[in-house]
Design a protein around this nucleic acid. Structure first.
Lengths: 212, 212
DNA sequence: GTTTAATTGTGAATTCTATCACAATCTATT
DNA sequence: AATAGATTGTGATAGAATTCACAATTAAAC
């Protein structure tokens, strides 16, 4: 029985791109089929978890053999929405914003960076890696014209909250936030926060509080 | 009753740095006390969750009033291990590695980048932002001499797996991995994976599969 | 002082996730 | 075509995390 999309566990969704990557990797290695055990081994998951996750979307496995790798790559790409092009804007052309704008993995994965926003007069109205750089005041206009769907936020801490609020106001519903600001947002939006200091702090916690 | 550290929920630990940031922010705003409700409001958590999280470590709150902000800042810094200096190495001096090495938030938070590793002869044996750059072959020696405790991995995809394996072999027990490689590791180590493409892919998933 | 309002800390209930364990079924071999 | 071995899909179970709900306590107002 196939789960309806409404009831897919959040944690399953987070793992889908890991599965996709594993399938791609094993395809490169020349494999045709891969078992849940092997997928689990490569990612430190139990085999049962892999099977349960994939079974949310259909019965893709063949008993006694495993999963057809190229079939599952297509399936997961469709499920994840990678069968279309996404229009992405980067906010903040500092070191991190520049690194993200240069990252080739994005375009390969069909996340197309079509605009960069900054407030520095020395940067705006030029291009960076062939991507036009706009002043942040142009946000609403550019978003509307270019139909931007996803924002990546890499502005300095002190302007982070205001920037994110303006992105929400402009109606961009998908946000990947690299700043330490955390801003409440409506249900129909999706925001993922990546906080470098926070990650290091929890690593610090675990290094202290494990018996070793 | 105070929880023993052994039984702190993983998710609580992840939220501690968010609480710390909230306390610092409210201190700057001139507040002395803050309630669980207000902490929750600022971060989209329920008040009950905030109270339960903080109560893992002691009874810090004052009924009718809330939490003493400067006391909690000190407490959380101690719990998270921010009362000491951590020695960090960055692996890979590309755009992302460079951005991370330049990030001032790290040093402020007592994560001190004392070494950068790369394989490019044009980069090694020089300094970057006053940080010495070593050839990756020097890994074990430098780690031993500088007592490096945390590794941040920002190397290209194709060398990621091998790099992480060598970091594990060198005995660095805390790893923050910005590559898409996922490498199984022993229990006493702690590795956190940050995967840009993966985050965007799950944003893509939610944008498609929400009724709107 | 007394009262009212605010807020904590926490057991109990609920919801969400992961694992177990095994029948069902497919492959591969002979 | 019969058998042995591998692997899936999933109901049942166990485990984790979150929320509820309220007694207990403190602050603040008068």
């Amino acid at each position: 029985m196939v789960n309806t999309l409404r009831t897919i566990p959040l944690f399953t969704v987070e793992r889908l791109s890991i599965y996709l990557r594993t399938f791609r990797e094993s395809l490169v290695e020349g494999m045709d089929f891969i078992s849940s055990t092997e997928i689990g081994k490569r990612n430190d998951f139990t085999a049962a978890q892999v099977r349960k996750d994939l079974s949310c979307f259909g019965n893709f496995g063949i008993k006694g053999k495993g999963y057809n790798i190229s079939e599952l790559i297509n399936t997961l790409e469709t499920i994840l929405g990678l069968d279309r092009e996404w229009k992405v804007a980067i906010f903040g052309l500092g070191k991190l914003g520049g690194a993200l704008a240069s990252y080739k993995g994005l375009k390969n994965a069909r996340f197309n960076v079509v605009a960069i926003f900054d407030v520095d007069p020395k940067k705006v109205d030029k291009t960076y890696k062939n991507i036009p750089v706009y002043h942040s005041d142009m946000l609403k206009k550019v978003v509307r014209e270019k139909k931007i769907q996803i924002a990546i936020v890499a502005v300095p801490t002190d302007s982070a909250k205001a920037t994110i609020q303006r992105i929400l106001d402009a109606g961009i519903e998908g946000i990947l936030n690299f700043t330490e600001a955390r801003v409440p947002y409506p249900d129909e939006y999706i925001m993922k926060n990546i906080n470098l200091a926070g990650e290091l702090e929890s690593i610090s916690y675990y290094l202290i509080h494990s018996d070793r």
